[in-house]
Amino acid sequence: MEREDLVGRVMADMDPELLNFLRTQVNSFVKWDLIRFFGENPYTTDTAENIARYAGRNVEATQAELAELAAQGVLVEQRLGEMTVYSLSSNPEVRRLIQRFLEASNDRQFRVKAIYHIIRGMR
């Protein structure tokens, strides 16, 4: 129990803004992939089927996560004819946070901590 608390404290030792972003928005590996994808390709607008293909994930898993990210304000969901399409929010604050997260993800220690929080959140 004590050991788990210690690990938790070590893992929580990261920038509070990024920790909050991880816990509230990047709380699954598919979302992590999607946030990275939209961060690297910020002017993408497409359907869940096509985005799943770009991200190399299956459509069912991607569809639900895209909808959640849209509900959280990270993405924008729009109807286009009979299609539902997703694009990155144009909110500068959201875009700044995503860029910070992507830059931090280049660091191995950050990645280890981020994975820990995602797995804990999935339990």
């Binding site: 390709n41 002017y43 993408t44 607008t45 359907t47 286009l80 004819g81 299609m83 399409v85 694009s87």
Partner: peptide, 21 residues
């Protein structure tokens, strides 16, 4: 410059509607 990644079906619909991306 803007590099937009999309698909033919989305861009075609988008271009046909008023006020598309």
């Amino acid at each position: 410059l803007r590099i937009i990644m999309t698909s033919p079906e989305v861009s075609l619909q988008d271009l046909q509607r008023v006020g598309g991306q």
